[in-house]
């Protein structure tokens, strides 16, 4: 039955979410060409160097494109989250819940289907966003001369070597896999808790989200900044002992552990509420 639930969940979401991902990718492709052309023109166009008005026009178009690109990426990612939120709320806690919760499946299977589908879309959306940003950056890179390109790549490589090692990379990958799940399940948790309110379910979910974020920020601040204060160099002027990778790795591990534990707590609370406390109008 889980397979059927997942199939119908994808059927209900693929049109909108595929469209949103196509917009992200399309924006990346457009930026590849626009960044390449405009930046190259700014750097090398003889006419542009001698004409201040034209130079200002091209520079402002360049900046506008850059801002529009990031705004569109932000809007598309926000749209994906909002769509998944609305889908979760409507199919479980609005009138549609009468159908969903009377299907001959366990309430945990319903939750698993929502989580698996949402997670696949989140990871897919994240990868598409990364690909889109990469395309935009490649557009920028290709507008430089081959010599400049080599210099830029060299500097990026040096910086990466300074802060990254295989352990950090692995932690970043784990981070990239866990955080979308954390984001998704925390939102589902807030919606599920919010529906316990008799009248104002959406307001309840928003309040829960605000409270959860506040608590989360306090705990994360303690785990990251507080941890930094405990390091030996914290009260010393000598930063020669500072090791980026060691600090990052420690912070990433702490954050990962906190996120995984939070995910487990949210999961069991949602399961309990869906099995015992569903509050349909």
């Amino acid at each position: 039955m889980l397979g059927k639930l997942i199939r119908h969940e994808f059927k209900a979401t693929w049109k909108i979410l595929l469209l949103l991902n196509a917009v992200t990718l399309g924006a990346g492709v457009a930026c590849f060409f626009v960044m390449n052309t405009l930046h190259g023109y700014m750097e090398n166009g003889d006419e542009l160097i001698s004409n201040n008005v034209l130079r200002m026009l091209v520079t402002s178009s360049y900046v506008t494109w850059f801002i529009l690109y990031f705004l569109s990426i932000f809007a598309v990612n926000l749209g994906t989250v909002l769509f998944l939120m609305i889908r979760y709320y409507r199919s479980l806690y609005s009138k549609e819940g009468y159908l969903t919760f009377t299907l001959p499946v366990g309430t945990q299977e319903i939750l698993h289907a929502k989580l698996i589908t949402g997670y696949v879309w989140s990871i897919g959306g994240g990868l598409i966003t990364m690909l889109s940003i990469l395309l935009m950056l490649l557009g920028l890179l290709f507008s430089f001369t081959p010599f400049e390109q080599q210099e830029i790549l060299q500097e990026v490589g040096d910086f990466a070597n300074l802060i990254l090692n295989p352990a950090t990379l692995l932690l970043f990958v784990l981070f990239g896999l866990v955080m979308p799940l954390y984001g998704l399940i925390s939102i589902y948790f807030c919606i599920t808790v919010g529906q316990l309110w008799q009248k104002h379910k959406i307001a309840g979910a928003i309040l829960c989200y605000i409270a959860l974020n506040f608590v989360n920020r306090v705990i994360m601040s303690f785990l990251t900044i507080g941890r930094m204060m405990l390091l030996p160099f914290a009260f010393s002027d000598d930063l020669s002992d500072f090791r980026f990778s060691s600090y990052y790795n420690g912070t990433l591990i702490t954050t990962l552990l906190f996120s995984v534990i939070s995910c487990a707590v949210f999961y069991f609370v949602i399961r309990y509420i869906n099995a015992n406390k569903v509050n349909l109008d």
Binding site: K95, E96, G97, Y98
Partner: peptide, 9 residues
Amino acid sequence: YLPDQTYLN
């Protein structure tokens, strides 16, 4: 089950 309201998508 037929609920007392429309529950279809």
